[in-house]
Nucleic acid binder design. Structure first.
Lengths: 232, 232
DNA sequence: CGTTGGTTTGATGGAGATCAAGCCTCGTGG
DNA sequence: CCACGAGGCTTGATCTCCATCAAACCAACG
C-alpha cells in the first residue's frame, strides 16, 4: 500500500481508463489525490459491508467482484480487467467483495475527493457513465451466457470472452493466453461445478479445439469451431 | 406515438427519475425536446440492431430488455420499472430489444439532443450515472439469484423482488399484487422452463405460502417463509 | 519427502428439461 | 347467447445432463 506519486505519463491504461477523458492539467489535479496500491493474488481490495470510502482504477492484473451467499458459497458476479473502475460512488457501504485474481496494480482514490473532482470536471462523470454502461452491458452478456445454455456452451463462450479480454481488443482475440482464474472461479462465474468445467475442458482438448499448457494456459486450435460450440 | 407537450408538474415519477436532478428551468428545457409515447403490451420500443437514436424514461407500466439467441429463444436480461431509463447513449446501435410487458407510458427523447443537455447540465449526467450503477447492481443481483440456486429458490426470490417492485419501496413489499409477466417470461428471466415455474408456484400454493388470484394475481400468505425459501 | 491446493477422472443419483395432453379464460363471430 | 378458437397455464411421464460423492493425480514448496 505504498503511497507513491502517480506516474500518469507512463501509465499503461492512460488512454483507456476513465481519467483519459481529462486533459493533462485536470489529470494532474486528480493524480495528487490518488496513490498506487499493489495487490497479491487473493488480497481483498474492498470487503462487502465496509464503508464505501474509496474507489480505484485497475492498472494491471485482474480482479473479481464476488458475493458470499447464505450457504457460504462464493458467487463471482464480474471480472475486472485493466482500465476498469471499481468502487461505489452512491452507496454508503460496499455491496460486494473485490478481490485480486492475480497480482495487480491499482490507482486508489478517496471517494469523497474523487466525487468532488467529478463534479468539477463533468467529462470525468461522462467517462464514468460510459464505463458503467459498458459494465452493465457486460453483466447482461454474462447473464445471457449462463441462462438456458449447456455446460459446453458456457465454457466455450467463457474461453472466447477471456481471449478477448486477454488481447484488450475485441476485434482480434488472443489465440494463446493464460486464464487468470482457477477452475473453481470459472465454475462460480458460469454457475457450474469445478468437475463439470474440468470435464468440458478435457473434452475440448480431446476434440482438438483447444490445447492446454499446464493448468492455466490455453491455446486455440480451432477458434471457429469454438464459436459455433458457444452459439449452440 | 402522440407528441404531447410533457407535463412534468403532474408526472408520477418526477422526483424519482433521472430528470429529478434538474431544477424547474432546466427541466423545462429538457421537456421541450421530449414527447410522450404510449405502448401496449407487446409493443417494441427499441429493436436490437437499430440505430440507437432515442432514449426514454418509463413513467408507468413495465418493460423488458431482451435478446434473441442463436437458436431463436428469447432471454430476458432485465425488467424496467417506472422511473427507469432505457436507451444507449454510447453505442451506435441498440444491443437489445426493449418491449412493453404491460401498457406503458414513456417520455422519449432524441438521443443527440438529450446528450447535448447532459453536457450542459452535469447534474443530469450524475443522475444517469447513479441510475446506471443501480441497474448494474440489480443485474448482478439477478445473476446471483440465478446461479447455483434451485428452481424453488429462484421462484421464491423472484416473487419477493416483484413484491418490492410493485410497491415501489423496498422497505415494505406489497403482500398482494399482480405479476406483470407471463409464466414464459418468468421462466426466461430465471433460466427455467415454463413447466418448472408453474410447478413451483403450485407447490408454493399447496404449502400455503402464497395464494393465486387467476393467472397473474399473487397473495403472500407467509412472507417470512418465502424469504427463507429464497435464501436456501 | 510429505503436505497442500488445485486439477482430473470415475460412478451414481436427482433436479429439471423435454415431450405430451388436458384445462382454463377471454375475445370473436356465427 | 353460445360455440369456437387461441393463448396461456397446469399436470403427468420420461429422459438427460450435470451435481454430488469419492478418489487419485500433479506440481509447487517448505
Amino acid at each position: 500500500m505504498a503511497a507513491n506519486p502517480l506516474a500518469c505519463a507512463s501509465c499503461p491504461v492512460r488512454d483507456r481508463a476513465a481519467c483519459a477523458a481529462l486533459d493533462d492539467g485536470q489529470r494532474g489535479e486528480l493524480s495528487r489525490l490518488g496513490f498506487h496500491r499493489s495487490l497479491k493474488r487473493g488480497d481483498t481490495l474492498f470487503h462487502a459491508g465496509d464503508d464505501s470510502d474509496h474507489c480505484a482504477t485497475l492498472i494491471s492484473g485482474a480482479l473479481k467482484i464476488a458475493q458470499i451467499d447464505a450457504s457460504g458459497t462464493e458467487h463471482i458476479l464480474a471480472l475486472v480487467h485493466p482500465a476498469g473502475f471499481v468502487g461505489e460512488l452512491f452507496a454508503p457501504v460496499a455491496h460486494h467483495d473485490v478481490i485480486a485474481l492475480t497480482d495487480s496494480q491499482l490507482c486508489v482514490f478517496p471517494r469523497r475527493q474523487y466525487e468532488e473532482v467529478v463534479t468539477r470536471f463533468p467529462a470525468l462523470g461522462r467517462a464514468l457513465l460510459r464505463r458503467s454502461s459498458e459494465d452493465l452491458f457486460e453483466s447482461r452478456a454474462l447473464m445471457a451466457l449462463m441462462t438456458g445454455r449447456t455446460a459446453g456452451q458456457r465454457v466455450a463462450g467463457f474461453l472466447l470472452a477471456m481471449a478477448n479480454a486477454a488481447s484488450g481488443s475485441p476485434c482480434h482475440p488472443a489465440s494463446s493466453f493464460d486464464l487468470p482464474v482457477t477452475r473453481g472461479e470459472i465454475a462460480s462465474l458460469l454457475g457450474l461445478t469445478i468437475e463439470t468445467v474440468s470435464r468440458q475442458l478435457t473434452r475440448l482438448e480431446k476434440d482438438r479445439v483447444i490445447a492446454r499448457n499446464g493448468a492455466r494456459g490455453i491455446d486455440f486450435l480451432d477458434a471457429a469451431r469454438l464459436g459455433t460450440l458457444a452459439a449452440g
